[in-house]
């Protein structure tokens, strides 16, 4: 923690990123207090009211307050990022541990599956998964997680391979520890910092991909204030209400940029060797 505070002062990316991420998290937590209206309160003002002091982001085609909608949208983005990260970590870390620890044919098969999902563009892959599962935000989260666990598996596998021959793991093996205990109690704790870095680096692309899918109409359904959905809705009114397109986008870019800075800063702090690739 002391080291973290020290780095906060000396690592510009980490400092700015942390502040920005905190802002997003606080907005999401206190959305009820910050937003003057609920996200689905319609006709709080005439439709397409221009941004003014009462409605800083204007109102949309149902007279809903855009500011409130954008504020509530932060909850969706953060929840999506968190859930997807948890699924990805569970999948990727267990597969990486197994492949790295046992090696041999199991490793070959798991690495092949990993390379397969790794090499395909995530948007296309998740569109295929959504076709099978059906539309909806939950399915989008599952789809994104199913196609992006491979980056965790790759790194965890490589780390496990180098750790399993270390003296402390061999000592454990000499004391008749089971394979499971060796993986979870000896090797896993040493990979945790790497996993944290990977997670914070993958959050931006998770948010971008899920909002992209919502933008295409495959994710959140109206009246959800999902930023992707707000943007795709704004397209129909682009010539009469440009503010509808500007503010959700700014919020999205702010959030993604925040996690980018935070992730890169955290990487420099916890695992500088990851930087090379």
């Amino acid at each position: 923690m002391k080291k973290f505070l020290y780095n906060l002062r000396h690592n510009r990316n980490l400092a700015i990123g942390t502040v920005m991420v905190l802002i997003v998290i606080l907005v999401a937590i206190f959305a009820d207090q910050i937003a003057p209206y609920a996200f689905d309160d319609s006709y709080v003002a005439p439709k397409f009211t221009k941004p003014c002091s009462d409605f800083p982001f204007g109102t949309d085609d149902f007279g809903r307050d855009m500011f409130s909608r954008v504020v509530y949208g932060s909850r969706i983005s953060l929840r999506v990022a968190l859930l997807a990260a948890i699924i990805e970590i569970c999948l990727g870390v267990s597969i990486g541990l197994l492949a790295g620890y046992y090696g041999g044919n199991l490793d070959r098969v798991l690495s092949f599956i990993g390379d397969l999902t790794w090499s395909m563009p995530p948007i296309i892959m998740s569109m295929a998964v959504i076709t099978v599962l059906g539309k909806g935000l939950t399915n989008v989260i599952i789809a994104i997680a199913v196609v992006s666990w491979a980056s965790y598996a790759r790194t965890v596998r490589a780390k496990t391979q180098s750790l399993k021959n270390m003296a402390f793991v061999e000592t454990g093996a000499a004391f008749n520890e089971t394979d499971f205990s060796l993986m979870v109690r000896y090797i896993l704790p040493n990979i945790v910092p790497t996993i944290i870095v990977l997670a914070s680096l993958s959050i931006p692309s998770t948010i971008m991909n899920t909002t992209a899918l919502s933008f295409l109409g495959l994710g959140s359904m109206p009246p959800s204030p999902d930023w992707g959905l707000l943007l795709s809705n704004s397209m129909s009114y682009i010539s009469i209400a440009p503010w509808l397109a500007i503010f959700p986008g700014v919020a999205l870019v702010f959030t993604v940029f925040a996690f980018n800075l935070f992730g890169e800063g955290l990487r420099d702090l916890l695992d500088p060797r990851l930087q090379s690739r």
Binding site: M208, M235, I238, I246
Partner: peptide, 29 residues
């Protein structure tokens, strides 16, 4: 460039449309 990695293509597209097709009217929508 670090900033631009945070900007999704579809928002850039929307902003470009807004600027060049709606406001300036120099390019087709």
């Amino acid at each position: 460039s670090l900033f631009f990695t945070a900007v999704p293509s579809y928002w850039i597209a929307v902003v470009f449309m807004l600027l060049f097709a709606v406001k300036l009217r120099v390019l087709p929508l």
